[in-house]
Design a protein around this nucleic acid. Structure first.
Length: 316
DNA sequence: GCCATACACCCGCGAATTAC
DNA sequence: GTAATTCGCGGGTGTATGGC
């Protein structure tokens, strides 16, 4: 085992992790000493010993304090994840002690919020009645930092592909079904058996916000149907808001087929019978590749696979 | 005002020794 | 053979001091 690996496995202790994270947060040896209730030399010496142990300079020293080097930034990021894992271990033990079967914190992207995640959570509660699912719905730009900081166990939805070096593990749950064009059930086009793309020009459009994978798919559909960009009145990352606007106005929206069918079954929306280009947007779940998922997290991922597979085969 | 270093002290751990 | 005690070492921390 290399010296670096040996040092990290054998000598790096939780208080070292706390020290590095605190130094990154406060960028000052003396302020960290105050925070951790130790002397300033203890912090200075502690940092020097970690640097000696790993054989790398982790912080640049200056008269104004400390600045992490690239090595420091990398190790600190791992330290944050390890501390979060330790916190999660404590949480899980507390919940097990209280008679629960563990907890899973899920970042839910809008596309997975109405059906995929809730259906999987319902199944989880059947097989593990005391398990607790904590759901956070937001866009990818807000959820990915939470995942990297260890505040989430996984993210479910349409998120961009990641490289192996990103520290994220991606599992494709569903290859995607293309984009469906939808309107409210009282919309003038709702009862039509056939709709021409040109008829959509008279209606305002609701599209996903910039930076989302689904937005790229929607833009391709808009280009294929020659839908004018100036008709876009709303960019919405909220399913609830989008549904309300679609039901209360003559706006046109864009959903994945699975979602569109889900809302059509509820009688909220209609899928317009219009020929659109097929732009599949895959749905996946992301987690940190260097963090071993808890038993509850693994169970939920298995159920997400089941629900997604049933959506593929039309059982859902 | 900031951080680094030198030195001293305390504490915990492991090995060696002793008592039973 | 086992448990208790002793001793040495290393790690962690504090104070004092110096350099930038």
């Amino acid at each position: 085992m290399a010296r670096l690996d040996w040092y990290i496995r054998s000598n790096l202790k939780p208080r070292h992790l706390q020290l590095l994270v605190a130094l990154d947060d406060l960028r000052s040896v003396s302020r960290v000493a105050d925070l951790l209730n130790v002397s300033q030399p203890a912090v200075s010496k502690g940092l020097a010993e970690i640097e000696k142990g790993v054989g790398l300079v982790l912080f640049e020293r200056s008269q104004r304090g400390l600045t992490p080097t690239v090595y420091g930034e990398s190790l600190i990021r791992m330290c944050r994840a390890m501390l979060q894992s330790l916190d999660a271990a404590g949480d899980e033990l507390r919940h097990l002690q209280a008679g629960a079967a563990g907890r899973v914190r899920v970042g839910v992207l809008p596309v997975a919020a109405p059906a995929l995640v809730p259906l999987a959570v319902i199944r989880l509660q059947k097989i593990a009645p005391r398990a607790i699912a904590v759901l956070h719905e937001a866009t990818a730009d807000r959820l990915l930092p939470m995942l990297r900081e260890g505040r989430l166990d996984l993210i479910v939805g349409t998120v961009p592909p990641v490289s192996l070096s990103s520290g994220l593990h991606l599992e494709i749950l569903h290859p995607g079904e293309g984009v469906s064009i939808v309107c409210g059930s009282r919309h003038p086009l709702a009862r039509r058996k056939g709709v021409d793309a040109a008829e959509l020009h008279a209606h305002p459009l609701i599209i996903p916000p910039l930076g989302t994978l689904f937005r790229d798919g929607v833009e391709k559909v808009m280009d294929a149907l020659d839908l004018p960009r100036e008709n876009v009145r709303t960019e919405s990352g909220s399913m609830t808001a989008t549904n309300t606007i679609l039901r209360e106005t003559d706006a046109i929206g864009f959903y994945s087929l699975h979602l569109a069918q889900h809302y059509a079954r509820l009688g909220w929306l209609k899928i317009l019978p219009i020929k659109a280009v097929s732009v599949p947007v895959p749905i996946g779940c992301y987690r940190l590749s260097n963090v071993e998922p808890s038993a509850t997290t693994r169970s939920l991922v298995t159920l997400l696979r089941e629900v997604a597979q049933e959506a593929l085969t039309g059982q859902a």
